[in-house]
Write a protein that binds this DNA or RNA. Structure first.
Length: 594
RNA sequence: GUCCUCGUAGCUCAGCAGGAUAGAGCAUCAGUUUCCUAAACUGAGGGCCACUGGUUCGAAUCCAGUCGGGGACACCA
């Protein structure tokens, strides 16, 4: 349960009651009312702006309005204290036992705690990675892959019906380049000396086995053939090989898509012609001449009539070309068809996860989605900024030109999947990340992955120790064994012993998990989870250390079984919430540190 | 030249669709280990939220402009 959403509906219920009684006008707009934790914990457990937001509509000053609501709130069984503060905030506290009961909810749900229904099963399509099938993935792709995967996981948890999708750009000139590069490797495999790979072709070694495979399969069949004959064959073969390579890289990262859509197949199925015919029927396609780009005019620029999409009618800066000078469709035209395809498959909500260099593409694509769907679909583009690699503070040089760049595989093999995934999510997507190989495996407070994992491991360690220390012992005539420590058993513990302010603060934090999931999902911001988990870890480590100063605060109190069970319920809940968050990230929680 | 994006403590970053006295970590300084993993914790100092206007009960947050970092700018993908 999102306890904040629950109390928001309680407040609205009170307002409706006041309206029914004639104390307040009917039909007030509640949409701006929020219930949230106050910035200052001293103000209370929860806070609402309801009185301030409604003051104009209700024709009452905020404090007077607040007074009306406060009476009703005071009567609520879970509410222990209510006050009006500042300009008209309504603040209240909840009884300890209300918070303690949250632990039962967590223990009953386990890892599923925080699952929400706000998505209401609505279909949403997340397209991510979509790396060109021309080579293995590099670190930059890793960020988009992890971000998209975590976002999809988050939306899933929030109750959306998510489709994870990969768009294969297998139709442009680049895949012809790939075919030619592969042809060279093919000749090489047949014993020719090919020397330096000419500029404009892909130089990477990863094409050698592809060329060799073709040589093994077809022998010298293509050696004397003209390009027009071997190119389609080599292209198809190489694309398949590259996609296999990419899927392998993705699975190294633990990223899996539900749907792979091929650009080429859209062309072949006539989907592009169809989509553009739709736009044309709506009068959104015309032939015109664009202004030259301001600032730096390309060398070969010349005024030329082009087939254009009226993107400016939907908020873009200029109208965009749909056809190249040779009459074929542009990438953009195909992408319109592709987005229409996604919408037709049932997702009016689309998300594209894009690289930093695609920022200039967002407006036109959003314009196109609105146009092609008649305003029924929407597109959110999440731009992932660059990842800068460091090795102990020194930048790692990457040169795509020479074909020697740091691949995704290199990184995953160096530090491990879980670390790569978590680190990629510790910054907002539109912020650049510094990824230091030395730092991310460091075991210190400075390393967020380690810190959160340590909290989980520590919780597990406490549970293990409890089982071991107490097994078979009788204390105060009460037996206590490891079967007492299952979540189901802990759920039945008497939780009223959890009254220390630090314990209650931790419980409040854990109880905020469902709200965090919903907020992060709505904002499409998985990074919030990383920061939240850091807070949970800090709060838990803090509580753990309090047991050092004050032995009465330790989790395991040998001579007090009820208290121990209550605290273990808290510890187990911490482990569940951390594991729940890590699951969204696709990171495995560790059971012990070594 | 246009568009996008970022600008918050010395450094790296949060700030939850406008709210109360702007928060963490690192670094600095001062403390805490016979005890559930000290690989941790507690406390202190450190800020004109780039700047200037505007919107309103109220702005780090929204709008306009200025300055600075990054990115993109017909017929590439």
């Amino acid at each position: 349960m999102n306890v904040f959403a629950f109390f928001r509906s309680e407040i609205i219920r009170l307002l409706d009651g006041l309206a029914a009684a004639g104390t307040l006008p009917a039909g007030l707009d509640h949409s701006r009312i929020v219930v949230e934790p106050p910035r200052e914990a001293a103000h209370g457990d929860m806070s609402s702006n309801a009185a301030m937001v409604l003051t104009k509509q209700a024709g009452l000053p905020p404090r007077a309005l607040a007074e009306l609501v406060v009476d009703g709130l005071r009567a609520h069984p879970a509410v222990s204290e209510v006050s009006i503060a500042g300009p008209g905030f309504i603040n209240w506290r909840l009884a300890d036992n209300f918070w303690q009961e949250r632990l039962r909810e967590i223990l009953a749900a386990g890892i599923a705690y925080g699952d929400s229904k706000v998505g209401a099963g609505a279909a949403i399509n997340v397209e991510y990675v979509s790396a060109n099938p021309t080579g293995p993935m590099h670190v930059g792709h890793a960020r988009g892959a992890v971000f998209g995967d975590a976002l999809a996981g988050l939306l899933d948890k929030a109750g959306f019906s998510v489709c994870r999708e990969y768009y294969i750009n297998d139709a442009g000139a680049q895949v012809d380049v790939l075919a030619r590069s592969t042809y060279l490797r093919y000749r090489e495999a047949l014993g020719e000396t090919i020397g330096e790979i000419p500029a404009g072709l892909y130089p990477g070694d990863y094409l050698k086995p592809v060329g060799a495979a073709l040589a093994a399969r077809d022998g010298n069949k293509w050696l004397e053939a003209p390009e027009s004959q071997w190119l389609p064959e080599f292209r198809g073969f190489a694309i398949a090989a590259m996609m296999a390579l990419i899927r392998e890289d993705l699975s190294l990262l633990g990223v899996h898509h539900d749907v792979f859509t091929s650009e080429r197949s859209l062309h072949e199925a006539g989907a592009v012609d169809q989509a553009l015919a739709t736009l044309e029927a709506d009068g959104l396609v015309y032939t015109g001449v664009l202004e030259p780009p301001k600032g730096k005019t390309p060398e070969d620029w010349e005024p030329r009539p082009q087939t254009l999409f009226a993107a400016t009618r939907f908020g873009d800066d200029v109208d965009r070309p749909l056809k190249k000078s040779d009459g074929s469709w542009t990438y953009f035209a195909a992408d319109i068809a592709y987005h229409l395809d996604k919408i037709r498959r049932g997702s009016p909500q689309l998300i594209d996860v894009l690289g930093a260099d695609h920022g200039g593409y967002v407006k036109r694509m959003q314009a196109a989605v609105v146009a092609i769907s008649g305003g029924k679909a929407s597109l959110d583009c999440k731009i992932c900024q660059l990842v800068h690699l460091y090795q102990g503070g020194e930048p790692v040089k990457m040169s795509k030109r020479s074909g020697s760049f740091v691949t995704l595989r290199d990184v995953v093999e160096e530090v491990g999947r879980d670390i790569v995934r978590f680190m990629m999510l510790t910054r907002r997507n539109d912020q650049t990340i510094d990824f230091d190989f030395a730092k991310v495996i460091e075991q210190s407070r400075d390393n967020p992955v380690w810190y959160v994992q340590y909290a989980h491991a520590r919780a597990q360690s406490v549970l293990r120790n409890a089982a071991q220390a107490q097994d078979g012992q009788a204390q105060n005539g009460e037996s206590f064994d490891s079967s007492d420590l299952t979540p189901a058993r802990l759920e039945k513990a008497e939780l009223s012993a959890l009254v220390d302010p630090a314990e209650l603060a931790l419980i409040r934090l854990l109880a905020g998990w469902p709200r965090l999931v919903e907020g992060a999902a709505e904002a499409h911001e998985p990074h919030r989870i990383a920061f939240y988990l850091g807070e949970v870890a800090a709060s838990f480590h803090g509580l753990w250390n309090k047991g050092k100063d004050d032995a009465g605060l330790r989790f395991i109190i040998a001579e007090d079984k009820p208290k121990t069970l209550a605290r273990l319920a808290l510890v187990q809940s911490v482990a569940f919430v951390i594991a729940s968050g890590l699951k969204v990230f696709g990171v495995t929680p560790v059971m012990e540190m070594r």
